[in-house]
């Protein structure tokens, strides 16, 4: 059995070295981009993933890692100083409200992770099916959906998030959910667009028509034939959007919307409280939450761009060594000078 495809008429191309077959466990699927990447791409992917993992670990194990809880203002009966310099008790100092900066920064990662996971799940759950249906069904439904999504897309994203957060604050108790929904509203159009675009091109594929000829219902076609071939573009955009979402989350927090200070620690809120401190030479209250935002955004962007480079066929450049033609490996030359008349 050979891997050579044979299409008469198509130019003879070397056997394509596409991405490895999608099979085996989910682990090998996740590992695939790391194996395929090279050089700068690989550096981006690995660094981004490593930093992201550290932040995720910090978030999950925040109660174990952070010296105090995010809303602790005293230890052993002694109140922390307000705006206290880094000390043995409070290694990164304390805030204007007398909270421990280190604890708040670490708990901030937890908040960010919670909001991100919720927001991504919501966006996927809404954006992907809408994109699939809109793209496959087409017609008026598609036009209306595109109009709505484009209208959402046209809004400045922070404004949209503010409006959404503002409207929802009174109906939903959990600030985390409110913020996640506000972010979802901002990012759904992007998922919708990407999924709809790839659905539109996949819809024309012969195997979709074959499924129709088989007698499959539209819902079956969408589930069994389109979904698997369309979602491949989603991981990249999900990661890039996640990076963007951190900024939106911080922006909302900075404006005092969404998450209430009593509910969770939030980097954006902390930054806002630290504004006055910076002028007074109190650097630690702003530095650490700010660093948290920068690191998280950078890490996720690196992963997203790295994935894009590897998975996007238009950007992918294969790095393959130029083969060396060794004399031992070759057959004889069929030079006409060695002609010999056959008897």
């Amino acid at each position: 059995m050979t891997a050579t495809t044979s299409v008469t008429g198509a130019p003879d191309t070397p056997p394509t070295t596409g991405p490895p077959k999608r099979r085996g466990g989910i682990l090998s699927k996740i590992a695939a981009p790391y194996k395929q990447s090279h050089g700068v791409q690989r550096f981006m992917l690995v660094t981004g993933t490593a930093v992201s993992l550290i932040i995720v670990l910090l978030a999950i194990f925040a109660p174990l890692i952070a010296p105090f809880s995010f809303d602790t203002y005293q230890a052993d009966g002694a109140r922390f100083p307000t705006q206290g310099e880094p000390s043995d008790v409070n290694p990164w100092g304390t805030t204007v409200q007398g909270f421990d900066v280190m604890s708040r920064t670490i708990y901030g990662a937890r908040t960010a992770l919670e909001v991100l996971i919720l927001a991504v799940v919501f966006s996927l759950a809404i954006g992907v099916p809408l994109g699939l249906i809109s793209g496959y069904v087409g017609g008026w439904l598609d036009r209306i959906m595109v109009l709505i999504m484009d209208a959402l897309f046209a809004f400045p994203y922070l404004l949209l998030a503010i409006v959404a957060a503002f409207l929802l604050t009174n109906t939903i108790d959990s600030g985390i959910v409110v913020t996640a929904i506000a972010i979802t509203v901002v990012y759904v159009p992007q998922y919708f667009r990407v999924v709809r675009a790839s659905t539109l091109s996949a819809r024309e594929a012969t195997y979709i028509e074959a499924a129709r000829a088989m007698g499959a219902k539209p819902s079956t076609i969408i589930r069994k034939y389109l979904f698997g071939n369309v979602v491949q573009s989603v991981p990249v955009i999900a990661t890039l959007n996640a990076a963007d979402a951190i900024l939106t989350l911080a922006g909302l927090g900075f404006l005092g919307l969404g998450i209430q200070p009593s509910e969770a620690a939030e980097w954006g809120y902390d930054l806002q409280r630290a504004i006055a401190d910076a002028g007074a030479g109190i650097w630690w209250t702003a530095l650490y939450p700010g660093l948290g935002i920068v690191l998280a955004v950078t890490a996720l962007t690196l992963v997203g761009e790295g994935l894009n480079d590897v998975l996007n066929p238009t950007l992918r450049r294969r790095r393959i060594k130029r083969p060396v033609i060794s004399s031992s490996a070759v057959g004889p030359a069929s030079a006409p000078t060695t002609e010999r008349e056959a008897g």
Binding site: R22, A205, T206, Y207, E209, A210, A213, Y225, G228, N229
Partner: peptide, 15 residues
């Protein structure tokens, strides 16, 4: 009523 298509590479779902 069934159909066989021209392009065998495109007529099967790659997944």
């Amino acid at each position: 009523l069934q159909m066989v298509f021209q392009d065998p590479h495109a007529s099967l779902n790659p997944g």
